[in-house]
Design a protein around this nucleic acid. Structure first.
Length: 114
DNA sequence: AAATTGACGGTTA
DNA sequence: GTAACCGCCAATT
């Protein structure tokens, strides 16, 4: 059963975009979060791909700590070599398999939004 | 309108 | 660890 609309209204799309950018900007230094987490916080679970899309194609995402967003596996973004470097610069350690140690660096989002 | 494409998530082998 | 699928959904072809 889909508990979501078939298609986002432009208004919802705008809201979603704003929420995503807002959430990303709140990730503390040295911590990371996941695409799915952000999507859920924005009120649209299962829109994890849209989060990545937003970060990739939204001009100004470079001003945000978008490097603190990784997938749930702890892997860095494909085709973005700097990603890992930027995280290591903040003290985030990577496991031997090249993934972020999520159990240690995953950001526990604060519940005070809306 | 149908198929393909992703800065994804999850399961199975 | 890798690889192959499947589900997801807006954008693109």
């Amino acid at each position: 059963m889909k508990d979501y609309p078939d298609r986002m209204t432009p208004e919802q799309a705008r809201q979603f975009r704003d929420d995503v950018l807002n959430i990303v900007s709140q990730i503390p230094r040295g911590k990371v979060t996941t695409y799915g987490m952000i999507a859920a916080l924005a009120g649209w679970p299962s829109h994890s791909r849209m989060v990545g899309r937003t970060l990739r194609y939204t001009p100004g995402a470079e001003l945000l700590p978008c490097h603190r967003v990784v997938n749930q596996e702890g892997r860095t973004a494909p085709g973005w070599s700097r990603h890992r470097y930027l995280l290591e610069e903040e003290g985030v350690k990577f496991k031997a398999n090249g993934h972020v140690d999520m159990s240690q660096y995953l950001w526990e989002p604060s519940v005070n939004m809306e």
